[in-house]
Design a protein around this nucleic acid. Structure first.
Length: 424
DNA sequence: TGGGCGTCT
DNA sequence: AGACGCC
């Protein structure tokens, strides 16, 4: 059996752990730059605030009743780790799928006692971390996801729902379930399925896999088998090193200032370099891009990217920054109001399998070792003393590109100076 | 009116 | 490169 453990309204729940006054209130958490609503409490959902809704589109009358918080990823990331730590005590097979979801394998466990085990696990997560979670159990990940939705929606499950792939109950449920509720099926695909007369999960499950593969892809074929209870989506690639590393941000406000762009790119490159070194990779090229705000039809639009090849594969932030800067220099255009920029590290290879180039002048071993030590120390300082303890250059004050986050709560669990206080 | 991936075509 | 999907 497979369990999908999903935290309820995760970001909101994290905030509530440290501010219990938010309990029972309509609370939402916003994406970067206070852009869209990415987490909602049950109460704010009832007020009609939709997932993904731009904050500025919320009716002012509704907005006044809500608490809208900026996202606090330092806090959510740490809480997420605590939750997965507890889950790991219950089975050796935990696949962390996202910040608030894990797939657990209970292969070899006694099926009869699984629901009860999961209840115990769920209560322990709540007790040890303060985060409420729901558990869906079935024989495939897609059905476990559906079971999880039921566990969340139907009170009677008490947070743990099991769906046997061939039970009457499952058939009845799938016959009422629109295809859009299935993992991997969203609007566009649902519309195409409708033209084939497929609107419910049951109809899809009963469809001919080979035929649907012709209309769609192998992904759709897998979904059909998954709905039948056959586990065929494998997540082992989650731990595989990334093939590209992308870092980009929208600016807090529009800017036409070249220095803003350079500073932003430098910060993004640093972050990308950290990620690259963490997976022990090297990049052979770096892509730089800039773009204007596509929602501002009153301003000229300009989207441009450029790939800069690197002389030799590298993970040195300074080299990456030099290349990115050169790229930026070539695509920057004056008198344009920029909204966003970013970098992508491409053509990655493993640190240990670096291919030596014939023509490029190789770095001396001594120089290479020195650069490596420098980057390792940089990463260590930032890991242990907080982000940006040491960085490439220092951004000017009041720059346009730093994020808007007007309602961020303290980083209660990861900063000494922001610890939660217990009143005496 | 987000950011960062992935797969398939 | 673009479409589509996920969270």
């Amino acid at each position: 059996m497979i369990a999908l453990v999903d935290c309820n309204n995760f970001y909101v729940s994290c905030e509530r752990v440290f501010n219990p006054r938010l309990e029972g209130k309509p609370v939402g958490v916003l994406s970067n730059n206070d852009g869209c609503v990415v987490a909602r409490s049950a109460e704010i959902e009832l007020l009609g605030v939709a997932m993904g809704m731009p904050a500025h589109q919320i009716d002012p009358h509704i907005r006044r009743q809500c608490t809208l918080l900026s996202s606090n990823y330092a806090l959510y990331g740490d809480m997420s780790r605590r939750v997965t730590d507890v889950l790991s005590q219950h089975t050796p097979h935990v696949d962390v799928y996202s910040i608030d979801e894990s797939f657990l394998s209970f292969e070899g466990f006694e099926p009869e006692s699984l629901e009860e085990r999961c209840q115990v696990m769920r209560k322990q997560v709540r007790r040890d971390t303060g985060i409420p979670v729901s558990v869906g159990l079935s024989t495939s990940k897609t059905l476990a996801k559906i079971a999880n939705h039921r566990a969340k929606k139907e009170e009677s499950f008490a947070g743990v729902a099991i769906m046997h792939p061939n039970s009457d109950d499952t058939r009845v449920f799938l016959k009422r379930l629109p295809v859009t509720e299935i993992w991997g099926v969203a609007g566009r695909i649902a519309a195409r399925l409708q033209t084939l007369g497929i609107e419910t999960a049951w109809q899809l499950r009963e469809a001919e896999p080979k035929r649907l593969r012709q209309h769609f892809s192998v992904v759709m074929e897998r979904i059909i088998y998954e709905l039948r209870g056959v586990d065929c989506i494998h997540l082992d690639d989650m731990t595989q090193p990334k093939q590209q590393i992308m870092v980009s941000r929208s600016f807090g406000r529009l800017t036409n200032n070249k220095t803003d762009l350079y500073e932003a790119i430098r910060a993004h490159v640093s972050r990308a370099g950290e990620k690259l070194r963490k997976q022990q990779g090297l990049a052979r090229a770096i892509m730089v891009f800039v773009r204007t705000n596509r929602f501002r039809s009153d301003l000229p639009s300009y989207n441009k990217s450029l790939i800069v090849p690197l002389q030799h594969p590298t993970d040195d932030s300074r080299e990456l920054a030099r290349a990115a800067r050169a790229g930026m220099e070539r695509i920057f255009k004056e008198n344009i109001w920029y909204r966003k920029c970013g970098v992508m590290l491409m053509d990655l290879c493993d640190h240990d399998h670096e291919q030596l180039r014939l023509l490029a002048e190789p770095l001396s071993d001594e120089k290479r070792a020195r650069n490596e030590r420098l980057m390792a120390i940089l990463d260590k300082l930032n890991r242990e003393h907080g982000k940006n303890t040491v960085r490439l250059g220092i951004p000017r004050k009041e720059n346009a590109w730093e994020l808007r986050c007007e309602h961020r709560t303290p980083r209660y669990t990861s900063r000494w100076d922001e610890l939660a206080l217990a009143k005496t």
